[in-house]
Each structure stands twice: as structure tokens, then as C-alpha cells.
Simulated scan of single mutants.
Amino acid sequence: MDVDEIEAWCKRKQIACENAVVLSGFDANVTDDVLLQALSLVKAFGIVKIVDRCLDVASKTQFVLIQTSTDLTKQTIPDCVGLPGKAGPWPVHVLPVLAEGEGFEAKLLSFLRHEGKTITDVKGLLNPSPLDMNAALINAISSLVDKCNTAPTDTQSYRKLRMFSGVRPTPSGEEEYDAWAEQTMHLLEEWQCSDNVKKQRVVESLKSPAADIVRFLRAQNPSATSYDYMQALETAFGTTESPSDLLIRFRQTLQCEGEKLSAYLMRLDKLLHCVFRKGGVQLSEMNRLRIEQIVRGALPQDMIALRIRMTHDHYSCPQNHS
């Protein structure tokens, strides 16, 4: 739910934006009593009231609109709320409110906060000394201009991930884990954007229970990267084989009689990506391992493989095919 939608929701319910909190990823089965108990743990909210709920079509969960007795623009708000071990966590969304007469510095800080930045991203901007005030503002504006210039290109090239929940049997319209993870890892390498954007795109493609795993990881470790998300999902839904076992299986995978080299390469690539997702190989090593295994495991009479062998200077292992 974007800023405009939250503002419209607040207007319909006649709530001041500075007293509005929206929770996302909320399970419809969770009662108001449980939610109020979780909200009571956040002192910055003061006295709270559950105003409304609406369905998030993408994740099949709910958005919940909360009214607080405190001015949230003057409070430190947590990223998530919940009852540890019982319910949640649910991401917290508040509106950046700019008061009349605020200076450029305050508006800039509010914008940075809304874009998911922190004060440390713009060093010296908050209560800076007179000497570094101009430099801090110039750096902040330059960063925002670069972001604005690159965002449209990135948006145009953005190819959405397929949906994945981890439910078995796989529901219609979703992917099995291996196919989803292979596509996701490929796109994470391909996307030219910040890791925060990559994380958002991964989360957008998830439904419960897979979405819950990432949500809890984010609550426990707010600095987790998109690859940390994938490692957590790999642990939950991937193969139980260890990285070393997978690498051994990769090295023992040979081309079958009558199998096209392209089909053999696809089998190798699928196994190699499993090793990579498990952390058993670095991205920079994958091309070398792929070529070495083609040279080692392809049929002797395959002409394309023969050409690869002739140009592969570092190949020294004997052929495994009899």
C-alpha cells in the first residue's frame, strides 16, 4: 500500500495522518485482542484504536489501520510489531508529514525517511556544524538526483518474480521451490538496483508460509540482505543435502547416451545453482566449474564438447566415459 492509498484511507476514516499507523501482512485469523496486546508493547503509540481492515490481494493477508493518541512524527517508531513466539511480526507503515513552514532540511530528512534511508546515510545533515552543512546538503541532493535519474530505467526493465508460498502440493499459479529459486537468484544478479529494492521484490513474490520466514528474519535482523533472505528460504524449502554433497554430485554428473549437450548443460546448471544457493560455491567460480564439468563429463563423440576440450587449456583430468 503506497502513501497515496494510506492518505486516502485516513481521509475516509477521518483520521489525522500523524496519528495513523498501518500494519501489513496481517493474518485475518488474528483477533483484535491479540493485536491490541501487541500494540500495547509499543509505548510510542500511546492509546490505540483499531479503525479498519482491508485485504492485500497480492499476499492474501490484510492491512490494518490503527489510530494512536500520540503524534507519530515526534516518536521513534519500530519497523515491526508483534508478540514474540505468538503472533506477527507485522511491518509498520507511517506517513511522512511535513508541517507548514518547515525548512528544506526538515523536508529533505522526511523524504529520506519515507524512502527508507536513515540519518547516517546523510552524515552531518542532522544538527551539522556550519562548516559541513553545505557539503552534507550537496551530497544528499546529489544522491537523490541520481536515484531519480536511475529509477525510471530500472522500473522499465523490472521483470516480476513468480509467486511462491512453499505450500505442497504447489497451488495453481505458483512455482515449485527449485524453479522459483533458480529464477530469483538469476534476477538478483541481473537487476541493477539497490539491495533494498531487491529485498522488496523478493518479498512481493512470497506468500505464507514462505513470507513468514522472511518476515521473521527481517524482524530479527533488519540489516539482512536479499541473499540472506534466499539462504533462509533455502534452509526451509531447499534440498537437505549439504553443499559438499551437492558439489560431489555435480562432479559425478555425466552426459547420458543419446542426450543432447544442451540438455546435459541444463542438468549441470540446475545442480550448480543448488550448490550456489547453499553457499558451496562463489558466483565468480561458477563459469569455470561449468566448463570443467562439460569437458570432464560430456560424451567423447560430441563435436561441440570436443571443440571445448581442444580450447580448454587447463583441462588435465582423464575422461570418465568408457
Rank of each mutant, 00 (worst) to 15 (best):
V3L: 14
W9N: 00
C10Y: 01
R12F: 03
N29T: 14
Q37K: 14
F45C: 00
D52W: 00
S59H: 15
I66S: 01
L72V: 00
D79S: 09
V81T: 13
G82R: 04
A87T: 07
G88A: 07
G88D: 04
W90T: 02
K107I: 13
L109Y: 05
E115S: 05
D121P: 05
D121T: 09
V122C: 06
D146F: 03
K147S: 12
P152G: 03
Q156V: 13
Y158A: 09
R159Q: 15
K160T: 10
P171D: 06
Y177W: 12
A179G: 01
A179N: 07
E182I: 07
W191L: 01
N196G: 07
K198T: 09
R201S: 06
V202C: 00
A211P: 02
V214D: 04
R218V: 03
R218Y: 03
T225A: 05
S226V: 00
A232Q: 07
D245N: 13
Q252K: 11
T253F: 04
L254F: 11
L254V: 09
Q255I: 02
E257L: 05
E257Y: 07
S262D: 10
Y264E: 00
D269S: 11
R277F: 00
R277G: 01
Q282P: 06
S284C: 06
I294H: 01
A298N: 02
A298Y: 05
L299H: 09
L299P: 04
M303D: 06
R309Q: 00
H312R: 08
H314W: 12
H314L: 13
Y315G: 13
H321T: 08
